Amino acid sequence: MKRTVIALSGLLYGLALAQAFPFTLEHEAGTLELAAPARRVVVLEYSFLDTLLALGVKPAGAAIGTQGGDRGPAPYLKPLLGGVNSIGSRAQPSLEAIVAAKPDLILADAFVHKDLIPQLQKVAPTAAFHSRRGSYDDLMQQVLDIGRALGKEQLARTLVADQASLLAKARSFANPRAGGLVAAVATPTSLTLHSSESFIGSLLERLGRKNLVKPQNGQSQFEVSLEGLVALNPPALVLFTAKDENPITRQWAKNPLWNNIEAVKRGRVWEFDRDLWTRSRGPLALKLIVAECIGSGLLADRTPSR
């Protein structure tokens, strides 16, 4: 009887899988059509890499190189990349390496790889998503779409449900009386604000911290000067920096204008690793980010420890 139940279960699973394919998906650069679940996937963004790994799939190739000044994947991803072939960097993927990987699916960024997509589509079926310019909702929808393309829809739904549950629990740590915040990437030469429609900006709002920055000219992320930051005068400031760089905010700290910002006067300036917080954007990264949101006192609006 037990064998019969197992056999029937396998048959029903097979029927469900058969019903899911052929698979069609409308994406940012057209329509993706797959006759069967993708098995050899090439990914050109870290969020797609994170998502595949969360789904238990090693990509056939990934843009994990450092060409063109790319910093490479965040540290949390590196131990998971054994056996994953580099096909160049996100900014400079190699078509030759992509062809050599023999993909049956390519995942590209609709903004970064816009000009490359027609060539990618000649190599293999290609789906383009707004990853770098996408919101939290966009990225969760991408988890579902990628899961369906891999024949792992149920696992993808579980991942998304787990993320929603995690965020709901994390919100209990948020201080409802906390003022708004500004979140920004600080490099040696610029400060780029992440609005309420960026991934990290929208995530912080879901966690109970109001983002004071709205999209500008249709851009979810945009640069601002010190004077522009002073004009916003946020009660809290969240900076995403790299440990091996000297961010522009170090220079600004010598300017009297910096000390007039409410967040600076209140001691509410947080710094986090930008490789994790703003470049990864997947289910694995999100768990780490939420843990840091709680542990750092950001959600509670507690003065960060130094």
Rank of each mutant, 00 (worst) to 15 (best):
F199G: 01
G179E: 01
V182S: 08
I200H: 07
N175G: 15
S172V: 10
A170G: 11
V185Y: 04
F199K: 02
H194R: 12
E197G: 14
N175A: 06
K210D: 12
S196M: 04
S202K: 09
A170M: 10
F173M: 15
K210T: 11
G179V: 01
A174G: 01
R177C: 15
R206H: 11
R171C: 08
P188L: 00
T192Y: 05
K210I: 12
R209G: 03
N175E: 10
I200G: 14
S202R: 05
T189M: 15
K169G: 15
P188C: 02
R177P: 15
L191V: 14
E197C: 13
L207A: 09
L191E: 10
G180I: 02
L193W: 00
R177S: 15
S196Q: 07
A186W: 08
K210C: 09
L207C: 10
G180M: 09
S202H: 02
S172M: 12
S202Y: 06
K169L: 14
S190Q: 15
G180S: 08
S196F: 01
S202E: 03
E197T: 15
N175D: 11
A186P: 11
L193Y: 00
K169P: 12
A178V: 06
E197K: 14
A174R: 02
A183L: 12
I200Y: 13
R177V: 13
L203E: 09
V185S: 07
S172R: 13
R171K: 06
